[in-house]
Write a protein that binds this DNA or RNA. Structure first.
Length: 483
RNA sequence: CGGGGUGUAGCGCAGUCCGGUUAGCGCGCCUGCUUCGGGAGCAGGAGGUCGGAGGUUCAAAUCCUCUCACCCCGACCA
């Protein structure tokens, strides 16, 4: 028999990823290179990411707004480092309404510039600060090597943009958002992350400092899952975002920007998936529990379906995202495999024996074999399901954290680093210079992911030198292969 | 943009070297019957401008030229 299902993850990780994304109906390739069609199941996963983040933003005083897709070319050029960083990946509109435009329009790669322009007119007084804005939008960055969700030419994201009176407040905001990202990743997506500061080489074009949450994927590669930037006064100067302080002095604002993209969906897939396909954390899973009815005879069929509908309604009323698989002509075995491939956290089997016993069989996706199965009475089924969903959520986080921790190692030389990054991340004292980092990449394919905050209580500690080039170290940095 | 590869039914492929009936196979799809607690069986059926354009030839999926798209590996990035 021909192999069914996806290529096992252990056999070919890259192939497994593209197959599982398509077979689980998260996304399809689009007719335009680098672009993707996000299908309902994938979009529902993105909507869960959105909901988790949006709630947290609003709880901390941010408000949503929407800024234009098109940005005047001259705006992009106002901040020197920004334009240098983004120029190679801009999509530019030169014609509109059948005529060549006076000034080309850039399809936004990010919105610091156009939002800076708006902020300049909105902020006059220290009483207007802080200004806390977020937008949910699509952006375009011309990509040479796309991968579904992880790197596409057009992608979905949120971008927060804030303006503050002082550097201290802006830095607090930058780190507050980093905490929000980490909290979302761990509690909702069950993806453990390392919070850290980006090197000069890896930071956002135009930022004074960039911070990141880095997650480990199943092939040990790192995924930058969210970034928060301290922009200092770089964009405030470029766009004249100024305010009068309490002593009537005209000052430039201090701004921040921060984003999480649809890449997070790819991160969830890669952090949790196994040989059989997806494994989704219940908090973000579009379908938390699927009910598979089983029958032999037509008599059984009616009775079983009736019971299945009752359980469906009970769970739905309790707020569980439950789906009853009533498809005809497919065996239960096929359905089991199908829903496992799609990552549904909990399966509920209901057959004639269960109906007779007023019970159901519950199977959790995060375990294998007999360990995964349990029986439960239909009375108070909702409590049992809730408990199990909580357990799966915790277990996926724990499995991911244990996997990651087992693959973090310390290095003190380039040779050790090279050895480690084939199966993990290497923590090494690092000078943080572009020159040194590029040489590491040249020799090992690994890049600096971040200077983890919890391993660097102080910067430029005395007596610590770079493990690669011997220059004074900025601190300890993780190096890894990265998406 | 450099290197490698692939375009034949919804998906996966054979056929291409060496041109020759009506272009096959598996899965999926449709209909019917039997099935159903871990990827069902039998029977019947639908579905193709062989990526596109030129050319060679009595004859092209097959040979030649050009072109387009996608995938994998490298240099940039959420």
């Amino acid at each position: 028999m021909a192999r069914q299902g996806v290529t096992p993850r252990s056999e070919d990780y890259a192939r497994w990823y593209t197959e599982v994304v398509q077979m689980a109906e998260l996304a399809d390739y689009a007719p335009v290179r680098g672009c993707m069609i996000i299908r309902p199941y994938g979009y529902e996963l993105w909507e869960a990411v959105k909901a988790g983040l949006d709630r947290r933003f609003k709880e901390t005083g941010h408000r949503n707004a929407y800024f234009p897709l098109f940005i005047p070319m001259s705006f992009i050029q106002k901040e020197a480092e920004h334009v240098e960083g983004f120029a190679p990946e801009l999509a530019v509109v030169t014609h509109g309404g059948g005529k060549e435009l006076e000034e080309p329009l850039v399809v936004r790669p990010t919105s610091e510039t156009i939002i800076g322009h708006a902020f300049a007119s909105w902020v006059q007084s220290h009483r207007d600060l802080p200004l806390l804005i977020n937008q949910w939008a699509n952006v375009v960055r011309w990509e040479m090597r796309p991968r579904l969700f992880l790197r596409t030419t057009e992608f979905l994201w949120q971008e927060g943009h804030t303006a503050h009176a002082t550097a201290e407040e802006a830095m607090e905001e930058t780190l507050r958002i980093l905490d929000i990202y980490a909290d979302f990743a761990e509690r909702d997506a069950a993806v453990p992350v390392i919070k850290g500061r980006k090197s000069a080489q890896e930071k956002f074009a135009g930022a004074a400092d960039s911070y990141t949450i880095e997650a480990m994927m199943g092939n040990f590669w790192a995924l930058q899952a969210g970034t928060s930037h301290f922009l200092a006064q770089n964009f405030a100067r470029a766009f004249d975002i100024t305010y009068l302080d309490a002593s009537n002095q005209l000052e430039h604002c201090w701004t921040t920007s921060w984003g999480v993209s649809s890449r997070m969906v790819g991160g969830i897939v890669m952090a949790h998936g196994d040989d059989g396909g997806l494994r989704l954390p219940p908090v973000v899973a579009p379908i938390q529990a699927v009910i598979v009815p089983i029958w032999r005879s037509d008599d059984d069929r009616g009775v079983v379906l009736e019971a299945a509908h009752r359980v469906t309604e009970t769970l739905r009323a309790d707020g569980v995202r439950v789906h009853l698989d009533e498809r005809e002509g497919l065996t239960p075995g096929f359905k089991f495999n199908d829903w496992e491939m799609r990552g549904v956290p909990l399966r509920i089997e209901i057959g004639p024996r269960d109906v007779a016993a007023e019970s159901v069989v519950l199977v959790r996706r995060d375990r294998d074999g007999k360990e995964a199965k349990s029986a439960a009475s239909v009375t108070a089924i909702e409590d049992r399901v809730r408990d199990l969903l909580d357990a799966v959520q915790q277990s996926l986080l724990q499995q991911a954290a244990e996997f990651r921790d087992a693959h973090l190692h310390e290095a003190s030389s380039l040779d050790e680093l090279r050895d480690i990054v084939s199966t993990g991340w290497a923590l090494i004292p690092h000078c943080g210079t572009k020159e040194c980092e590029l040489s590491v990449k040249e020799e090992t394919k690994a890049t600096s992911r971040c200077f983890p905050l919890d391993r660097n209580p102080e910067w430029n500690p005395s007596g610590l030198s770079c493990g690669v080039c011997e220059r004074p170290a900025l601190g300890y940095a993780y190096f890894a292969r990265a998406y």
